[in-house]
Computed example of a mutant assay.
Amino acid sequence: MAAKLMKKTRLTLYCDGCVDFSIFEAKMNAMQWNSKVVVITGATSGIGEACAFRFGQEGAKIVITGRSQERLNASVEKLKAKNIDVLGVLADAGSKTDNERMVQEALQAFGRIDVLIANAGISMRALFEEMDLEVFEKVMDTNFWGTIYATKYCLPEILKNKGSIIGISSINGYRGTPARTAYTASKYAMNGFFESLRTEVMKKGVHVLVACPGFTASNIRNNALTADGSMQGESPRDEGSMMTSEEVADAIFKATVRKKRDLVLTGEGKLAVFLNKWIPGIMDGIVYNKMAKEKDSPFK
C-alpha cells in the first residue's frame, strides 16, 4: 500500500514541479521503520554499533547485545542521545541460553522482532599448527554458533512478520586467508548456513542477506586472538585507509531496504571474490604474498 502511494505521489509531485519528492520519500521510509524492531548482536562497537545508529535513525526500535556491561551501557547512552529507542541486553553471542533470553527481553520490551543482524564476531591471527584448539573453538562458538543461536530464536518472529535476517560475514567467507583458519572456517560456515536457510524460507516472505565487508576500520583486528588465546592488541593493517563502519552500515541498510541477496563491499573485496572463482590456484600465491607483508606476519 505504501509503495503504491509513493509511486502515485511521485508522479503527482513530478507533474506539479513544486515539491522535492526525496523529502516525502524519506518521511515514508521513516514511517515504515517506526513500527519495526531490529536486533543486533555484538553491537557495542564497529559495524554492529554503526548499524544500530543507522537503523535507529530511520525510526526503528533497536535491541543491542554485548558481553561487557560497561561498554553496553555506553552504547545505549550514545544511541539514546540521538533519540533512538534502544534496549541493551548483556549477552554472550556464543551462549545458547543468552540468545534465548535476548529474544525474550526484546519481546518483553517491544513486542515483536522484524530484523536480526547477526553481527557478533571475533577474529584470530595465528598459524594453525601453532594454535590452541580452544582458540579455534572460541572463534567458531562466537561467529558461527552465535549466528545459529540468534537466528533460531528470532526466526519465529521474523517468519510471522515477514522480516529480514542479515548475516555479517566477510570476504573470508569466499576466500580463505592464511593465519586465519578459524575465522575463515566460521565465515564459510555462515555463508553456507544462510544459503540453505534462504532457500527454506524463500516462499515465506523472509528476506536473507549475507553482507561481506572487506577490511573495515574497526577494533576487530585489535581484539583478534593469537595462538594462545591472548588478544593481538594492535592491528597489523593501516586502519585509516579502510572503509568506515558507518559506510558499511549505510550499505547494509540500503541492501536491506532493497532486499538484496548478497552484499560484497570494497573494490578489493569484489576483486578477490571474482578472481578466487576463476583462478583459485593463482590466488593462493597472491593471498600468501599479501599476508606475508603484514606487520609481524607469522610467515616471517
Rank of each mutant, 00 (worst) to 15 (best):
K160A: 12
E195A: 14
V210A: 13
T181W: 00
S196K: 11
C212N: 14
A227Y: 00
R221F: 15
A211G: 07
N222S: 14
N219C: 12
E157S: 13
A182P: 10
D228H: 00
Y188Q: 11
H207Y: 11
G173L: 07
T226I: 05
K203S: 10
N172S: 09
T177C: 01
V257W: 00
Y188F: 15
A255G: 05
L197G: 08
A255V: 04
M231Q: 15
V206S: 04
T181R: 00
Y188E: 08
K204H: 11
L225V: 08
S196N: 13
Y174V: 04
S235T: 10
F253R: 08
T244M: 06
A255M: 01
I165W: 06
H207F: 07
S164R: 06
A227I: 00
G233H: 07
R175L: 14
E268W: 05
A182N: 07
V264L: 03
I165D: 05
R237H: 01
S170F: 06
I165F: 05
G163N: 03
S170E: 02
I168Q: 04
S245M: 10
I158G: 00
V210Y: 09
S230Q: 12
P213W: 08
K162G: 03
T177Q: 13
I165Q: 07
N219Y: 07
S241K: 12
T266M: 09
M202K: 15
R261K: 11
V264M: 01
G229R: 05
L271I: 12
A217N: 15
T266I: 04
D250H: 12
G173F: 05
L265D: 04
C212A: 15
N219V: 14
A189Q: 10
D238I: 03
E247S: 09
L159K: 11
G167W: 07
S186A: 10
E239L: 15
G214E: 06
F253T: 00
K162I: 05
S170C: 06
T199H: 15
T266P: 01
S245G: 10
N223W: 02
K187D: 10
V264C: 02
G192D: 08
E234R: 12
D262P: 09
F215S: 12
A272C: 05
S235K: 03
K270L: 00
G205K: 03
P156M: 03
M243T: 13
G192I: 14
A251P: 01
G176C: 08
V273S: 02
A179P: 01
P178I: 13
Y183H: 13
E195M: 13
V201M: 03
A179T: 13
V208M: 11
K259A: 07
I158F: 04
T226Y: 01
S196V: 12
I252H: 02
L225T: 04
A211M: 05
S230G: 03
